[in-house]
């Protein structure tokens, strides 16, 4: 049990990163950014490509992936979403779907559809602990991933609460119109939001890449799990996404021992649906209400 929790934390941290990328965009633009999974995939591939061609170390790859994740997210916003921002919501959503299908399949053409694994970037050792009668094994890779996740989140928290732009983003997630009336350039704000979202997605891509194999279709499931986590945490809430991400990682790992592993990927959706039906505000979200 404890072992499952430990295994779940590393993955959960990555879920949280993806979820925060979802949630900041939804909070500010009100759009389900269906392409976020693709940004995540681009990040994973960017990391993979710099590691395999330039033999850089993991941290350089992480930074490169974050840059490309941010860039792609920005380009998607600039080219696909911005012209439609005031249009009907369904059109915006279909655009997101289309962009996602486009990027995913273009990647499959350019990089070939098969899956591949990151080359080992550093020595991962396995530590074991004896706790009473149970033996716990921890991979140093898991610890490192978890640590990187925490650092990124701490940085994000600093950005949101301490910088002017971060504060404006937080305020915009409550009321974009009011923020724009106070003289904040909305286009600039949304650009920054997509950069932040994309960088988080790109980072998550590399972190998943070092743990598992990567392929051009990897964004579909990961992106949706990120959305499920965002919903569980309460859409628009960054701290909620952090908690919910860790929670989902752990629950998934525990469930494989108790329920059939075939349902592992379905758990995220069941949790998400249950959250929306029972408590639509999620763990820490605020309420989106129709004004009468």
């Amino acid at each position: 049990m404890l072992q499952q929790i430990i295994n779940g934390l590393a993955l959960g941290g990555v879920y949280a990163l993806i979820a925060i990328g979802w949630t900041v965009v939804f909070g500010i633009v009100g759009l389900i950014n269906w392409t976020h999974g693709e940004v995540f995939m681009i990040g994973a591939f960017a990391g993979y490509l710099v590691i395999t061609t330039y033999h850089v170390n993991f941290f350089v790859a992480l930074v490169v992936a974050m840059f490309f994740g941010g860039l792609v997210a920005y380009l998607i916003e600039r080219l696909a979403y911005r012209p439609l921002r005031t249009g009907p919501k369904l059109a915006l959503f279909i655009t997101a779907l289309g962009a996602s299908i486009f990027i995913r399949n273009l990647a499959a053409i350019i990089w070939e559809p098969q899956s591949r694994a990151y080359p080992a970037t550093f020595e991962a050792s396995v530590m074991t602990w004896q706790l009473g009668s149970t033996v716990l094994t921890i991979n140093t890779l898991q610890i490192m991933i978890f640590a990187v996740t925490l650092v990124i989140m701490a940085f994000l928290q600093w950005f949101i609460t301490r910088t002017m732009m971060g504060k404006a983003m937080l305020a915009a997630s409550q009321d974009l119109e009011a923020v724009s009336l106070m003289g904040v350039d909305v286009n600039h704000l949304i650009t920054i939001t997509f950069w932040v979202s994309g960088m988080l997605g790109g980072a998550a891509g590399v972190l998943v890449g070092v743990l598992y194999a990567i392929d051009p279709m990897m964004g579909a499931m990961a992106g949706l799990k990120g959305w499920a986590v965002a919903v569980l945490g309460g859409v628009g809430s960054i701290s909620g996404a952090m908690v919910a991400g860790l929670l989902l990682g752990v629950i998934e790992n525990i469930s494989t021992t108790f329920i059939s592993s075939g349902y592992r990927d379905a758990i995220a959706f069941v949790i998400m649906i249950a959250t929306l039906v029972i408590k639509p505000t999620g763990l820490m979200g605020f309420k989106f209400e129709d004004k009468v």
Partner: peptide, 24 residues
């Protein structure tokens, strides 16, 4: 009870759950 973007993901999730059931 659920509106707009949230309904999209709920219906999507329901579909996925159906698929997992059929597979398993």
């Amino acid at each position: 009870r659920i509106k707009g973007p949230f309904l999209v993901v709920v219906t999507y999730g329901c579909g996925e759950v159906f698929k997992f059931i059929a597979i398993n």
